[in-house]
Design a protein around this nucleic acid. Sequence first.
DNA 1: GGATATAGTTAAGCACGCTTAACTAAAAAG
DNA 2: CTTTTTAGTTAAGCGTGCTTAACTATATCC
Lengths: 137, 137
Amino acid sequence: MSRSWWSGWRHFTRNTGLSMPQFSILMQVYYRGQCGISDIGEYSQITNAAASQLVDKLTQGGLLERTEDPNDRRVKQLTLTKKARALIDTGMNERYRWVDELSTRLNADQRRKFGEALTTMNEVIRDMDLDSAPKKR
Amino acid sequence: MSRSWWSGWRHFTRNTGLSMPQFSILMQVYYRGQCGISDIGEYSQITNAAASQLVDKLTQGGLLERTEDPNDRRVKQLTLTKKARALIDTGMNERYRWVDELSTRLNADQRRKFGEALTTMNEVIRDMDLDSAPKKR
DNA sequence: GGATATAGTTAAGCACGCTTAACTAAAAAG
DNA sequence: CTTTTTAGTTAAGCGTGCTTAACTATATCC
């Protein structure tokens, strides 16, 4: 397992043809909703140039739509295609499959505790996310 | 937080100068103990050539020692230097610092549940690791 | 002993992510 | 209206990780 995540990632990566930074951008748009190139750059801590290039590949791969913002024609609005959404959902199912495999190794008591733990973690982490999210412009 | 891990990784990466595959190899030797190039390759699912090259950089960086196995002079035994051990321990502390920060946001009850959850997860995951580990040669 | 297999190295070549620098176009400020 | 700022693109160049292919050196098989 200390094993699985990285090599599991590499498995996912090969199937989808996505690199980690690319996937990261997809997830960003997934959670943030529509946003511009600069947002991507800022979030990922890379230059806008780099962000632009990555987004470019994703649009070429049919995963992102890049349209002009009618209010400010400098900014491009990025949105996920259906293909991208499907892909992300698949990725999440992978994750849950992992959890499934894990849970077959648990006895009833462990499984219950584990479920509670995940729930708590989710709640707490959602809180943390909300705290740092609302950087609107 | 969905944010923190990847950009937190990038932070770690910049400070140490280590790439992810490089760090991955270090962790491998850390957990496996002494092993050869082929073991690295097999585990990381890359060719021995690639493994050799990565190990090369790590030895140049003073993180890995590469010595001959006296029993079979074809195989090189990889061992971590003190520097590498220190670095890994630091990395782990980083991780725990993250947990600390998280725990300041929890109330007493949440904190207790969370602690239990982590304990359970650790136990279970350790079991999974043991199951897949003992690939000796 | 000689053939074959195994562990590791080296070099050429490719794709990737990233940065800097030079650029375009639109918006905001004066 | 002109100047300056902001959003994004493009191209050159670098460091990586990776693969294939050719090679060396040791061990094993018959």
